[in-house]
Design a binder for these strands. Structure first.
Ligand SMILES: [Zn+2]
Ligand SMILES: [Zn+2]
Ligand SMILES: [Zn+2]
Ligand SMILES: [Zn+2]
Lengths: 132, 132
DNA sequence: CTTATAAATGTTATATTATTACATAGCGTT
DNA sequence: AACGCTATGTAATAATATAACATTTATAAG
């Protein structure tokens, strides 16, 4: 069961927008879309985004400076994320593969560093784009 | 043997700077540092960075918007990269672990997508920072 | 050597992404 | 009420990155 975070007004507006869109959204595109709801300034958007990332409701696609709703109910905190990104149509989806996440969560090398978090982005061509 | 790319003048200036620094550098910090060598505009820096990334001499640390010289002689093209990042001191190093790269290069899920590239960033505390 | 072509450069302006600083409001606990 | 904490509002600005256009240099072919 996913813990319900009580989102604040701005957080809820922004999460709903991203969630409904189903694809990565950029901060200023979000801003444009919520201006009619009274959110007028970039900082209001970035603050909500920061919080939503922190509690794992959304993730940042680092290579795209964009934010997508979490598609993986088991991932309550953004500490182990993996995405597949089509370099042609820019479609992004979250990968939830338990073997992969187990492998990466347990990964350690000889640096003596204990990793508490990772983010992985795979790139390629999606089915549609491949067949064009 | 690493193929020698004949770097152009600007590319060489910028690569040498990043390589000598041994740590991730940001574009505008690079710009500041090469102004005495006649590189005056952001675009000159970004063009060189783009090329250097393309040929694998440097990599972009996406979560930091910074660029680091490749520390892995076997990685001539930036198509399979992994980094360890200390969230306290921001030290970054490139991970070259053949098991990891094999695992990720061969990774496939049920999306039907063939991945040609990946970037992985691990986060944690480095030895030094852990012991503080 | 000449011509063609691609790659790189120079320059100005501008777009996009993100944060600083400061003031105010709401909410739960004691 | 007094406190601490989270969230909000607003203005200004910092940091990151690209568009558009003109020119020069390197490379290769004829
Ligand atoms: Zn998720
Ligand atoms: Zn596609
Ligand atoms: Zn490398
Ligand atoms: Zn450290």
């Amino acid at each position: 069961m996913q813990k319900e975070h009580n989102l604040s007004r701005n957080q809820k507006i922004i999460f709903d927008l991203i969630d409904k869109s189903g694809e990565p959204m950029k901060a200023y595109s979000i801003l444009f879309n919520v201006q009619k709801k009274g959110i007028k300034a970039p900082l209001q958007v970035y603050r909500a985004l920061d919080k939503l990332v922190e509690i794992g409701k959304i993730h940042k696609i680092e290579s795209r400076n964009a934010f997508i709703a979490c598609q993986n109910s088991s991932c309550q905190i953004s500490k182990a994320t993996a995405f597949s990104i089509c370099e042609s149509c820019e479609n992004v989806s979250e990968i939830s593969n338990s073997k992969l996440s187990k492998y990466l969560s347990n990964f350690s090398d000889d640096s003596g560093m204990k990793y508490s978090k990772y983010n992985l982005e795979f790139f390629g061509l999606c089915k549609k784009c491949k067949s064009k």
